[in-house]
Amino acid sequence: MITYKNIIRGIVTVTAVTMLFSCEGNLNRIRAMDLPGDSPQAIGTNLDLKYTDSGRVVATLKSERMLDYTNLEFPYREFPDGIELEFFDENRQKNTVTSNYAIIYDETGLIDLQGDVVLVTSDSTRLEATQLYWDQTIGWVFTDKPNTIRRPSGARNQGQGFDSDLNFTNFRSRTNVGVQVIEDKNQ
């Protein structure tokens, strides 16, 4: 004998089975849309980011496009159209870096800047290079590529590779030719 209770139980069973199969179909469609492993997890355009520490702006970053690969085993963010980065010290002195291309490696804190790299420090020291690495964790910049450094005093250094702190006070050049300005303190 078919009772009202059996009819309800049958309807609930049919509905549940139908929902299971339709969910499986949607799951397969979602899996088909899944991105390949080498695709960015996010793409940002017209970026104007501000980094703060204790309410103080310590850096600003502008870029036309960012590709976020922080979903990979070795996470990084790529800026294929270049960056303009301003960073400020404790005294609010501004340093600026621009390049045609940049990549930031999250785990190592290393930034690789490429193509028309220009770094201008707060005292107007200007570095121009084809490539520059910046180690954020120790505040160190270095390259093995050709570079030119112009100091506000008129001193100029052209070389192939160097290591330095961000203020160029601890500077080690590998090979260079330049003009140095030396003050005569006897005059």
Results as ranks from 00 to 15, higher is better:
G55S: 02
R56N: 13
A59T: 07
A59V: 00
T60D: 03
T60Q: 09
L61G: 03
E64R: 12
R65D: 01
L67E: 10
Y69P: 03
Y69R: 07
Y69V: 06
T70A: 04
N71Y: 04
L72Q: 15
E73L: 09
P75M: 01
P75W: 08
P75R: 00
P75K: 02
Y76T: 05
R77A: 04
R77Y: 04
E78T: 02
E78G: 04
F79P: 02
P80F: 06
D81Q: 09
D81I: 08
G82D: 00
G82A: 01
I83C: 05
I83G: 07
E84R: 03
E84K: 05
L85E: 04
E86S: 01
F88S: 06
F88Q: 02
D89F: 01
D89V: 05
E90V: 06
R92D: 12
Q93H: 06
Q93T: 02
T96C: 05
T96N: 04
T96V: 05
T98P: 00
N100K: 10
Y105H: 13
Y105A: 04
Y105C: 03
D106G: 03
G109E: 00
L110I: 08
L110R: 10
I111H: 10
I111R: 05
D112V: 06
Q114H: 08
Q114T: 02
G115E: 02
V118A: 00
L119A: 07
L119Q: 09
V120F: 01
T121C: 03
S122D: 11
S122I: 08
S122L: 09
S124L: 12
T125S: 12
R126A: 14
L127D: 05
Q131C: 08
W134N: 06
W134Y: 15
W140A: 05
W140H: 14
V141H: 06
D144F: 07
D144W: 00
K145V: 09
N147I: 07
N147M: 13
N147Q: 10
T148V: 11
I149R: 10
I149E: 08
R150Q: 15
R150P: 00
R150T: 13
R151W: 14
P152F: 08
P152A: 14
P152Q: 13
G154W: 05
G154R: 12
A155R: 09
A155I: 10
R156V: 15
N157Y: 12
N157I: 15
G159F: 10
F162N: 03
L166D: 01
L166G: 08
N167D: 14
N167F: 09
F168H: 12
F168Q: 15
T169E: 15
T169C: 03
N170G: 01
F171Y: 15
F171P: 11
F171T: 15
R172A: 13
S173D: 04
R174Q: 13
R174P: 03
R174F: 12
T175V: 14
T175C: 04
N176M: 11
N176A: 14
